[in-house]
Design a protein around this nucleic acid. Structure first.
Lengths: 184, 184
DNA sequence: TATCCGATGATAATTATTATCATCTGATAG
DNA sequence: CTATCAGATGATAATAATTATCATCGGATA
């Protein structure tokens, strides 16, 4: 198992590619293409630092000084909903604590934020040798499995919003029940 | 690679075990053993839902109605610091967005919250078959690698607090530089 | 070009968390 | 057993992030 840091050249090309498709994707999702949306996705794609809403807002305001922070929040949420962006973690709402110190991972319901512990035999040994990232001293790792719990699936889940971390394992814009391996 | 949901019987036994050691661990860390701390770790170990501070506070108040929410926050933070608890994710402070839809994972500096994309060849295919959790429809997954970035390591990193997710890969209470495989 | 629904900006409200500070208490020494 | 003191706690204020509200505006379609 080999770990590679994503490099910047490739990222820039990817950003251009995505921008070229953006208007079409909005239309496909039934959303008007507004200058704010365009500016926000552009700022996101140009950023290398997985920005917060405020940081994107600052960047966007360099060209469009009138843009409201609320719009940035709303738009980023929208982009996640239509699969044009993701959150690094679904669990940013509030700190969730865990008293279990044994090695384990988490299944998270993206609607109600229910969390369950799972152990994945073999994963940690497989990763053990691979984890190294230039510029960082690794301390540990943990896997977040995004899911919808049965309650939310049945009930339509009134509680919580979906606000999606697409998740690595998922083919973008594919909302199947079965998770996707999705290697390039 | 096989995924198992952590079961409740085992958890209960584990909780008793941890409670038996708790006072000693506080002393070892140079911390006074207070009834609040004891009640809070107990509530955390008894919970199955990876609770938020407020939920722990509510539970604790059933026996100690005077306990302050601020104390619960502080204590949970302390417990993380001494390695008696962890957070499910390090990134709960604020939503961090990502425009990169290609499958990838994240290295996160636990001090300054810097994030970098990494790809891990083989991981997603290896997981693809294994990811299933009773009661959940999986959508995707992503690995969060906890680390300290070089800037923070050198500088002593004045920015941000450490507030630890121990991370699965790490042997509890071991602060080595090299990450640990840490399978049971 | 007119119409309309959704988007936006400004701002208030809410929620989670952290800071402040006076008071209290567990741990240690005597 | 009591005095002492550093650190813990409770009450509350302050901050930070996010969401809600609502009047107005502007893309998209006819």
């Amino acid at each position: 198992m080999r770990l590679t840091v994503v490099n910047d050249n490739r990222r820039a090309a990817y950003a251009r590619e995505r921008m070229a498709e953006f208007a079409a994707r909005c239309r496909a999702a039934g959303l008007p293409v507004t200058p704010q949306r365009t500016a926000i996705i552009e700022a996101l794609l140009d950023a290398t630092d997985h920005p917060r809403a405020e940081s994107i807002c600052a960047e966007v305001r360099r060209r469009h000084p009138h843009v409201s922070l609320a719009t940035v929040h709303r738009t980023l949420e929208t982009l996640c909903r239509i699969g044009e962006a993701r959150k690094v973690t679904t669990l940013h709402d509030s700190a969730r604590y865990d008293g279990n110190l044994r090695p384990h991972h988490h299944v998270v319901c993206v609607r109600c934020r229910r969390i369950r512990d799972v152990e994945i035999a073999g994963l940690d040994t497989a990763l053990g040798g691979a984890i190294r990232a230039p510029g960082f001293k690794p301390l540990g790792w943990s896997l977040e499995i995004q899911a919808v719990c049965d309650d939310c699936a049945n009930f339509g889940g009134r509680e919580g919003r979906s606000s999606g971390t697409g998740g690595v394992g998922r083919t973008p814009r594919n909302s199947n029940q079965t998770p996707q391996g999705a290697n390039e």
